[in-house]
Nucleic acid binder design. Structure first.
Lengths: 225, 225
DNA sequence: CAGTTTTATGTATAATTTGTGAAAAATAAA
DNA sequence: TTTATTTTTCACAAATTATACATAAAACTG
């Protein structure tokens, strides 16, 4: 589980093999799909795919259509393989959230360089929807929290608050800021309600409770030791 | 001060103007440089530049050489403008940390789309604000002070006061001025309370305590040696 | 140097802020 | 509807900080 998985989608098996060889040689794990539908199926059942390389020209679902579908599900990086360098196409791609273009023919070096560049970028900005700090694992999409492997029941607000704390690790957050981000903008109640939630969070986090630090006269901060 | 600054470097003034026009129309602020040396000078004196667009082909310092220099100073995003699509060059660029390529000729839309894509990526991971003087490191966003690597507990007012001192390094500050900036405007107590806070700050700063100098009959000043 | 003014410092007190448990209010579920 | 759950408010204790004050020390003035 240390090799990154790359999904290569192309109808020509020769081209798939070529790309696969280059990537495997550079220590990636490659999954192949020979058309758009299959690609989406595979992606659905394989959410740990780190990158998709899509040929533009394919029968039935073309590359853009696949990209569009994928974007409904995920922000996984997408590289387009294209023969034509039509500008209109390229623009369309950027609008769909395509990360990079490689035009055929290409060399192994270019392919690998771009793959690495795109992966580097996507790795650096959050990526998954699991925020994990020490023994606390917060699964944002599943709205679930595990502490030392055990699931802990948090209410909706408690979860949102913890999420806000953990995505702003090490940042001092004023009560006002917390209210504006975790509560709706139309909330005009007492800011002290935050204290009550912090109290409950702290107790539910057990030993990790004191990762939530009080900044006297200011607010709170989530910080590990 | 909300427009993002983009530095455009090209020896051809026609090309600079073209790029500038496109960007200005899209609400960016553009600074021009007509060669590599000038670009680096401008970048040095203008650290709030959000993006550099570099022509590859320039006399004296070429685009790659400029990129290399810039990377020694900063992680600011770089887009290369290139006529030739030589693969070796492109590879070289990626190794230097170039974020994107645009090959000439290009359309306004492509230019702006790529600029926005690159900026979006770089914005997401922009850092914290830390004021650091000698052994004192004041982390404003974390509301935390480190002295010789050790965290020191400061109260809210103490922190604000030190922050004010350090952002006004070398400037003589009257008690009145300090009150107006660190205390709320509705504070009408004794200005001597500043003395008490200064006393505590000095003792908490340990050996660095005498960076806070007394200006007799006037106020205080934060100054190194 | 004596006298005056200003600052340093230790301590006491006032004021503010937070923690907590329990009750009330609002929401969701049955 | 009743019942359960979550969210908010409230009150008071506990903790922390800000300020005032008294006195000592230092700096300036003539």
């Amino acid at each position: 589980m240390d090799k990154l998985k790359i999904l290569v989608v192309d109808d020509e098996s020769r081209m798939r093999k070529l790309v696969k060889d280059y990537l495997v040689k550079n220590n990636y794990s490659v999954i192949e799909a020979e058309n758009g539908e299959q690609a989406i199926d595979i992606f659905m059942g394989n959410r740990d795919i780190s990158l998709i390389i899509l040929d533009v020209m394919m029968p039935k679902l073309n590359g853009y259509e696949v990209a569009e579908e994928v974007r409904k599900l995920s922000d996984v990086p997408i590289i387009m393989l294209t023969a034509k360098t039509s500008e209109a196409d390229e623009l369309k791609g950027f609008e769909l959230g395509v990360d990079e273009y490689i035009s055929k023919p290409f060399s192994p070096k270019i392919l690998v360089a771009r793959v690495e560049a795109v992966l580097r970028r996507s790795m650096s900005d959050s990526g998954t929807d699991i925020i994990s700090v020490k023994g606390i694992e917060l699964n944002v999409s599943a709205h679930k929290v595990m502490i030392d492997g055990e699931e802990v029941e948090l209410s909706y607000k408690e979860f949102e608050l913890l999420n806000y704390f953990m995505t702003n690790q090490g940042v001092a957050l004023s009560r006002e800021k917390i209210l504006n981000n975790v509560w709706n903008y139309d909330y005009f109640g007492d800011a002290r309600t935050i204290d009550t939630h912090v109290k409950k969070l702290r107790s539910k986090l057990g030993a990790y409770g004191d990762y939530i630090k009080t900044i006297w006269g200011m607010g709170y901060k989530f910080e590990v030791v």
